[in-house]
Design a protein around this nucleic acid. Sequence first.
DNA 1: ACGACATATAGAAAAATGTCAATGTATTTT
DNA 2: AAAATACATTGACATTTTTCTATATGTCGT
Lengths: 102, 102
Amino acid sequence: MDEKRIAAIFKAFCDENRIRIIKLLRSGEKCACKLLEEINVTQPTLSHHMKILCDAEIVVGRKEGKWTHYSISEKGVEQAKECLRQLTTLDVESENKPCCEK
Amino acid sequence: MDEKRIAAIFKAFCDENRIRIIKLLRSGEKCACKLLEEINVTQPTLSHHMKILCDAEIVVGRKEGKWTHYSISEKGVEQAKECLRQLTTLDVESENKPCCEK
DNA sequence: ACGACATATAGAAAAATGTCAATGTATTTT
DNA sequence: AAAATACATTGACATTTTTCTATATGTCGT
């Protein structure tokens, strides 16, 4: 995966309000109006955050009439975890010449 | 952990250059001058990114004479993984009233 | 002690992000 | 059909982040 996409995925988790939204969704699917009651932003701001979360595929939206129900995407979360794993797993294969020795 | 700290941890992973730096460190400890050769920023900008990575505890710096050797912190990475797990694990306990029903 | 080197810090400019008010688009309710 | 509701989009503004140049700090070699 390219750096830009990886960055987009983790951007989901680097705003305080988005973290609050994710925490709220742990208890299950919620519609935007419910989320709006719980976090202290205006409706357009919430909508903006939901877009970022959905683009990162951490959250999915399900439209039903005039409501949109959001929930955590198990698939997206797995991808984020896998991404974090790949990024941070040491590569023992590549021999690493010590650098900047005296 | 509070939202601010969680955000700080994941900020490590939401800049393209920092992701490149982390990828470089997978092959083992590297000094700043080596990293500088590989990513396309000035020395102060690299220094700035290293500070963010170290503050997030994803990377640790080891000073040795005039050099600073950076490496991925296994401990910090584990904490990030655990954090991601906790954030995204569904809470089956809390019953979730369906909201916004017709 | 002096010059060269490695890195950090300060300050400013540029770019990206978060926020809100106003407005648009569906859909539902009356 | 009109009003109300739920959500998205637009555009403006403020804040934060990224980046640079210039400079400071600390260490090494001579």
